[in-house]
Simulated assay, not measured.
Amino acid sequence: MLVWQVIMNLEETLQYHHIDVSSLSLPEYQRGGKEHPICLLRVPVTQILAQWEVLRGLVSETGYWPVIGWDRFKQPLWEEEMVQTILEAGLYIDIQQWLKQEGIHTRIDEEGVRKRADVPPAPFDFRLPYGRFPYTLPSLVPIALVPTTHFWEVPAYLPVQGNEWDPSNAVQVAMMKYWNERWGAELVAMAPSTVEMRVLQPPTTWEDAFLLAKEQYIYAPDVVDQWLRGNFATLVKTLLNGHVWLFWWD
């Protein structure tokens, strides 16, 4: 199907559900090629999360997963991996083995963390939807519409890896798929070196929250080391019954 036909079909579906498509655009750079175009909407900041919910509810109908915060479309680096290559690598990764290998030098004093169980949590809330975006007016927020019904494939289209020491885009695919299967996590917002997810079935026991916090610390240590000032116990309490996860790499 030609790109213009894809866009027309998407427009018709969105309009049928009373979504304003006046800002719908087709970025010049398409990592997935013309057969799988990424589209872009710009939505008033006051409506952003409600609009995301509507678009999320239409994924099975549109075939597009909405991602808040991405408007940095640019030509890829030389010899950049293709979408299918990243997806194949991500689905091949044994994420438990990756966590074990990456966590070799991670030492957490569980007894010490338990002693700080009375530390008040710092409930996470979405931050990226209310930030400033380089190619979007301050009153608006971009939503990228990515041509997949499986959100864990999004890092193959919108590369989240910002530095060579960040988890690779293939690892991002594997980790998001794993957490979706385990906790019902879903991608809401993303930008280079930043991921924000909502969680439908968060951990309800200290033990599960502690194990999850270890995984998240291995995956994105800057959340604890910088944001929470090294307080691992706060992360555990935040994840316990918490419905928002934030990740950030400096």
Rank of each mutant, 00 (worst) to 15 (best):
V6C: 07
L10W: 04
H18E: 08
D20V: 00
D20M: 04
S25W: 07
V43L: 12
I48E: 05
E53W: 10
R56Q: 09
R56N: 07
L58E: 00
V59L: 03
E61A: 08
E61Y: 03
I68E: 03
G69L: 01
R72K: 10
K74I: 04
W78N: 13
W78F: 11
E81A: 12
E81N: 06
L87S: 02
A89D: 15
L91Q: 15
E102K: 11
D109S: 11
E111Y: 14
R116S: 12
R116L: 14
P121W: 03
F126S: 13
Y130F: 15
Y130E: 09
G131K: 00
Y135D: 14
T136C: 15
P138K: 02
S139N: 11
P147C: 10
P147F: 13
H150V: 14
E153R: 06
W165L: 07
P167W: 02
S168A: 06
A170W: 05
Y178P: 08
W183R: 05
V188E: 02
M190H: 07
M197F: 05
R198I: 02
Q201T: 13
P203N: 04
W206L: 12
D208A: 15
L212A: 11
K214W: 11
V224L: 09
V224M: 11
D225F: 08
W248V: 14
D250G: 14
D250R: 08
